[in-house]
């Protein structure tokens, strides 16, 4: 069954001189239950736009997004987002940040104490037991992003949306957060749509990598299945026979087809 069904979506923004700026044009994509999909593409091609359309933060000019059988008209508790800029509220402690989502998602279903328990559990899941009552300014960038993941997962969404969540982190922190995400998703069996511009990250995490062409009027240029069992280990992956071929496919798309297209001004 499809968790998310993106049906013939186009998205135009109000551009210069009243001309509409068409960011996305005719996108079709279906994400199965429990599937991990990575969106990859050059900066500015419309990856965040597509993710915001799934989240319901934006409404498409054409087409529909269907999530769990119902058309998306606004954000809802069935979809949670991890933002690129962590987007923690600086005046709330980590556990208060996590509780914010829980309170809305479980209103009337859980008691206050149960909600608190749930928030603390979510932080424990990402190994932040020690930072529960700390404020965002007291913790590192990697820890903030863990709180962002905990906040999103704690609402038990049908679909987890991640917008370049590790883009701003150094390589070592990024690896440890990727491993953390692998471990957590293995437990929760979440359906995930994640935006990235990191080829290795896509191969490590995704069942399917969706490659987007450069904008404007970006489309899905190619889709690559990564038919390796999840969860994957980054060290084993490095010596996997198919790994090089996956990399080559993605590199070929991003740096030959797309850059060539950009240079000829197409």
């Amino acid at each position: 069954m499809a968790s998310v069904d993106i049906r013939d979506i186009s998205m135009a923004f109000a551009g210069k001189n009243d001309l509409p700026f068409v960011a996305l044009d005719g996108i079709n994509l279906s994400v199965k239950d429990g599937e991990f999909v990575c969106l990859i593409g050059h900066s500015g091609c419309g990856k965040s736009t597509l993710l915001n359309l799934i989240a319901g933060l934006l409404l498409p000019t054409k087409g529909t997004v269907v999530c769990g059988g119902t058309p998306v008209k606004a954000p809802g508790p069935d979809r949670a987002m991890v933002f690129q800029s962590h987007a923690l509220l600086p005046w709330m402690t980590c556990v208060e940040n996590v509780s914010l989502g829980i309170r809305q998602a479980f209103r009337g279903r859980l008691s206050k104490a149960e909600m608190q328990e749930k928030a603390e559990q979510a932080l424990k899941l990402v190994h932040l037991d020690h930072a529960i009552h700390k404020y965002p300014y007291e913790i590192s960038g990697g820890m903030k992003q863990r709180v962002g993941i905990a906040r999103a997962l704690a609402t038990e969404p049908r679909v987890l949306l991640l917008d370049e969540p590790f883009g701003a982190l150094d390589a070592l922190t990024r690896s440890s957060l990727q491993d953390e995400l692998i471990r957590v998703i293995e437990k929760t069996k979440s359906t995930v749509v994640m935006v990235t511009h990191d080829i290795d990250e896509a191969i490590l995490l995704a069942d399917r990598v969706v490659m987007m062409t450069n904008g404007p009027e970006a489309r899905i240029g190619d889709v690559m299945d990564v038919s390796l069992d999840r969860p994957r280990d980054r060290i084993e992956l490095a010596s996997n026979a198919h790994y090089g071929e996956y990399r080559r496919q993605l590199l070929d798309f991003l740096y030959r087809k797309q850059l060539a297209r950009a240079e000829t001004g197409a």
């Binding site: 933060l57 954000p75 809802g76 933002f83 987007a87 914010l100 989502g101 809305q104 998602a105 906040r151």
Partner: peptide, 12 residues
């Protein structure tokens, strides 16, 4: 980004 957090998590 804070407005988006509020919207995504359904804050009234």
């Amino acid at each position: 980004e804070w407005v988006n957090v509020s919207r995504v998590f359904g804050v009234g």
